[in-house]
């Protein structure tokens, strides 16, 4: 769903945004007697660029983090590939395009050793689950609530799975 409400463009706002400043006085005079608000009362809304969805960006980043951990510790390939694939499914559900998914690059872990690197992933999954839960709670669209609840649950389930991997690493 769109994150920003569209501001209706009125004839007056369009005119005001396109005329040179020197012509403002003339336009103000020309509006006298009409039932429209005076020109100085009109706030011109700057066009906001479409903001990428915070949850989608986080999913793409999570995939990169898992790919980076696999590159650093190939022995984690099995488990982390499965989890990364789940994040791809989440990202697709949140509207990721194939181009966005193809463009993901591995994010190397900060830790040089495997257990702390897994700890980083656990912390990221926990933060992701919290963000999805908050977003689900704040959404006004029932289908979005349902999808984000599923994703929040999935990401919560990655925590014990990764802890198990860390215990045995």
């Amino acid at each position: 769903m769109p994150r920003h409400a569209h501001h209706p463009v009125t004839r007056r706002a369009l005119l005001a945004s396109s005329v040179p400043l020197g012509a403002l006085g003339l336009i103000t005079l020309s509006s006298c007697g009409s039932d429209e608000p005076p020109l100085e009362a009109i706030k011109i809304q700057p066009t906001e660029p479409e903001q990428p969805d915070e949850n989608l960006l986080d999913e793409l980043s999570l995939i990169g983090a898992h790919l980076g951990a696999i590159d650093a510790f190939p022995e984690l390939l099995g488990t982390l590939t499965a989890i990364a694939d789940q994040h791809r499914a989440h990202a697709s559900e949140l509207g990721a395009t194939p181009e966005q998914l193809d463009a993901i690059t591995p994010i190397p872990p900060a830790a040089a050793r495997i257990k702390p690197a897994l700890g980083e992933l656990i912390a990221r999954e926990r933060a992701a689950a919290e963000l999805r839960a908050e977003s689900a709670n704040a959404s006004t669209d029932a289908e979005t609530v349902r999808a984000l609840t599923f994703i929040a649950a999935s990401e919560s389930s990655h925590i014990p799975e990764l802890r198990d991997v860390r215990r045995n690493a």
Partner: peptide, 16 residues
């Protein structure tokens, strides 16, 4: 519930 399922031995799922 999703966490508990994994703790009981299930694999995690994208949409449990």
């Amino acid at each position: 519930s999703a966490r508990a399922a994994v703790q009981w031995g299930a694999q995690s799922q994208a949409f449990p």
